[in-house]
Structure formats: structure tokens, C-alpha cells
Design a protein around this nucleic acid. Structure first.
Lengths: 113, 113
DNA sequence: GCTATACTGAACCATATGGTTCAGTGTTAG
DNA sequence: CTAACACTGAACCATATGGTTCAGTATAGC
């Protein structure tokens, strides 16, 4: 099994824990955007938006490129594979537990008869 | 499409952004546990662990039940469906964009000939 | 060249987070 | 009944977060 960097998951889940940042990701999923356009769309100062972009970039969820005086933001290449995989892993553990519980219940039923 | 409560996603992603809490979830995925046992396993004071459990409980990822003097923690019934769905939704947007880009590239190629 | 635009960085603020200690309360075991 | 145990809550601490303003720097357009 792949070993995920704990710090990387820390950063990406933390990045996802803010509604504004999730909104930014959804928006970038439809079209790339400058920092100003995002600041405008989310009714926030440019500086504030830049901080959010910084967090998303740090987490590897967004990449940016500055051309002239405008910085363009796009969804990062990494995607959310690691995060999705972690969640799925937990869900499998969880379901395995339920299955085990089912077995026990079955066992008890059989003994009752 | 289902409308997720923004606040619920805030809480659950924030809960997942801490390595200790992810560890707790993995552990509870294998077996239920008392608060003391968790505190011991993660080398932390009982009070500190209780805070983590509180965060996880608030996020709906863990449920607890107190019997006598011991509080038992289990994975919450809600699972991580909403979080997985949100991530998947974004990934679909993301892939759709790549597909669109592919179409454009195809178009350009055709015009070149 | 001058002005408006787009971003950057520093400083500040209020609140949240992750941890601790200490002082309880209620429960169990002997 | 008493001692140990499992938890609870309040108070405290350092650091992080989400936002702001203000003062820059660099580029674009007239």
C-alpha cells in the first residue's frame, strides 16, 4: 500500500476545510482565473484572496503562473487522489467491521436455533 | 445534485486535517475504544484526547456512548460519504476540463492539416 | 512619461487550535 | 467505606488562521 505523507494530507484537508477555498477550487474546475477575478467573485480583498491561493498552492491543489502583471490560477496537477484514497481506505475498514459484525450476528442466530 | 451543508464539510475536512485524528479514525475502524485507551495509544493526556474526540464527534465522524465511568468511541454512522462525494465532484469537473482541452487540441490539429 | 492596474509584503487584529495542568465528579472494586 | 479509576471542565499558553489596511513594486496603455 502507498504510504501517504502525513503532512501532505494535513495540508490538503486543511485547505479543503474552508468554504471559500472549496469554492475557489470549484470555480477553477470550470475555468482558470486571475487572482483579482477570484477576489472579486468572492467579495474579498486581493490580499485576502492571495492568502487563500497560497494555502491551496502549498497543498498542491492549485498551480499559478505569473505573466506580465497578472497571475493565473489553475487546478493543480496532483488532483485529490491521495485524499480520495485515504477516505476510501477508511471506508473499507469501516465496512469490514460491519461485515465482521454481520458474521457474529449470523453466528448467534445459528446458535439460537 | 445533493446540496451539502457547507458547515458540515468545513467541520469534517477540518477534523481530517490532523494526523492524530486521522490515526484515531483508523484505529476505531479496527476496533472501538475507550477515551483512556486512545489517550494512551497516542501518548497524550486524557484531556487532550477528549478534545480530539469532541472535534470528531462534532463533525459526525465518531459517536460515543458512556456506560458507567467509561466512554466508548466508535466510527460515526455517517461515514465519509459527503466528503468523498465532494472530492469526486471536483475531480469530474477537473477531468471535464481536460477533455475539453483535448477537443480543442484535436480541433487545432485538424485545422493545421 | 504618467497613470491605472495587478499583484506583493508587512503589520495588525480577533478568534480558533492543539496542547497542557489542576481541580473536580461519578463509578467500581476490594 | 474507601481508594483508585475514567472522565469532565476551566484556565492557561503558544501558535495558526482568516481577514483587514497600508505601503510598496512592476507592468500596460495612452
Amino acid at each position: 500500500m502507498v504510504q501517504y505523507s502525513s503532512a501532505a494530507l494535513d495540508a490538503s484537508f486543511a485547505a479543503l476545510s474552508d468554504a471559500t477555498r472549496r469554492g475557489i477550487l470549484e470555480r477553477l474546475g470550470r475555468a482558470e482565473s486571475s487572482v483579482s477575478a477570484l477576489a472579486d467573485a468572492f467579495d474579498m480583498t486581493l490580499t485576502g484572496m492571495k492568502k487563500h491561493i497560497g494555502v491551496l498552492e502549498q497543498a498542491g491543489l492549485v498551480t499559478t503562473e505569473k505573466v506580465g502583471r497578472v497571475r493565473t490560477c489553475r487546478l493543480g496537477g496532483r488532483g485529490l487522489m491521495a485524499e480520495a484514497a485515504w477516505i476510501e481506505g477508511l471506508q473499507q475498514l469501516w465496512e469490514a467491521r460491519f461485515d465482521a459484525l454481520d458474521d457474529i450476528v449470523e453466528e448467534l442466530k445459528r446458535k439460537e436455533q
